[in-house]
Amino acid sequence: MNTILEIRNVNKSFYQKPALTNLSLKVQKGEIFGVMGPNGAGKTTLIRIINRIFSPDSGSVRFDGDLMVDRDLYHIGYLPEERGLYRNMTVEAQAMFLARIRGLSKSDAKVKIDYWFDRFDINDWRKKRVEELSKGMAQKIQFICAVLHEPKLLILDEPFSGFDPVNVELIKQELSEMRAAGKTIMLSTHNMKSVEEICDRAVLIDQSRKIAEGSISELQDAQKSGLIAVRFQGNMIAFVNALWTGFVVEDKIILGDNRFEVHLAVRGESSFDDLLKVLMGHVKIEAVWEMRPSMQDVFIQLVQPKKEEDEK
């Protein structure tokens, strides 16, 4: 059983306005799973349903193979988009309280607090009140409080918004290490670069519906344009002549020192291998690659047409 979380045909609406429509998805153990979508798409509603803050109108949520129950929340860590701490509590008391309501015993909580405070080198802050901390320091505490009980599944809603760049890097590194340790991470974000960098798979939600799900490369492949990029040194006319009728130049970038990067569309039955054959001997090829869209492009391509349709 590799699936840790399975959402089946979940529907949720608020006062007749749908927030999620017939949504299904699977999150595999040990992966970093991205939840993407424009504002108001239903990402936070989905996350709140997984955290049992909301209950779905219909459909089911299965955790580790079984229908999810309250006790499963002890195996989930959650860092919401709108996050905060008790301002007049000490850092240690706060961590202890949040660890206890996540099901840890007092002695276990103490061991975990010692471990994480050592790991983030924040032992000096133990007795400080949260109101005395800087925003960056508070962000570290928030993250620690979400992972303190070592959850099987960590859910992060917009984890990089509001965090300073140093903390963003720190958290990315922690997430990678957690994945290596077999933990599953689900993150909802607008930051497509982060999705591309750290996610294994992702789902794209728009206007309460799932519009795509798959590995990052699958999502990119589905939206790829079929263009091939070639970087070479030599004569541009010789290059164009060599292409003959199999390929058409779509775009070119002059790099200097008689070097060019050209984007080619493929015609008819021509293949990647054909291109290499026709060019060899005419120009000095530095690199050839199949052009893939960035996740930013994937996002825009999938969301934009739907919006245009709606506007019509």
Binding site: R52, D70, L73, E82, R83, G84, Y86, I101, R102
Partner: peptide, 16 residues
């Protein structure tokens, strides 16, 4: 206050 300092969502993920 719990609502305005946004700790409430963290709590609601553990308690009803």
């Amino acid at each position: 206050r719990e609502k305005s300092n946004r700790i409430v969502e963290v709590l609601l993920a553990s308690v009803s």
